[in-house]
């Protein structure tokens, strides 16, 4: 395995783990805003994470017993 592909693999794995434990995906959000709402100012990273966390923990749908 080359150094480059190892790096890609490590990055992809880290991404998968982050998504599974429910870390909000800021980069994807920014890409979405830029692609679909040209000219709109995306939230800052801190603001985005805060908004996602507040949303996640205010509804009963995010966890079980």
């Amino acid at each position: 395995m080359t150094g480059q592909s190892f790096k890609t693999l490590a990055r992809d794995t880290a991404n998968v783990i982050r998504r599974i434990i429910g870390v909000p995906d800021y980069d994807r959000y920014v890409a979405h805003v830029q692609a679909h709402h040209p000219g709109a100012q995306p939230m800052s990273r801190a603001e985005f994470i805060r908004q996602r966390q507040v949303d996640r923990y205010s509804k009963p749908g995010s966890r079980c017993c």
């Binding site: 998968v16 998504r19 599974i20 429910g22 909000p24 959000y29 890409a31 805003v33 679909h36 079980c64």
Partner: peptide, 25 residues
């Protein structure tokens, strides 16, 4: 798709995420 609430996600990730959410004590 709004980039934050509705986000299309790979099936294995959704599987892991859903499992982690339903499995508790």
């Amino acid at each position: 798709d709004d980039g934050h609430d509705f986000v299309p996600t790979n099936r294995w990730i959704v599987f892991g995420h859903h499992f982690a959410a339903i499995a508790g004590p």
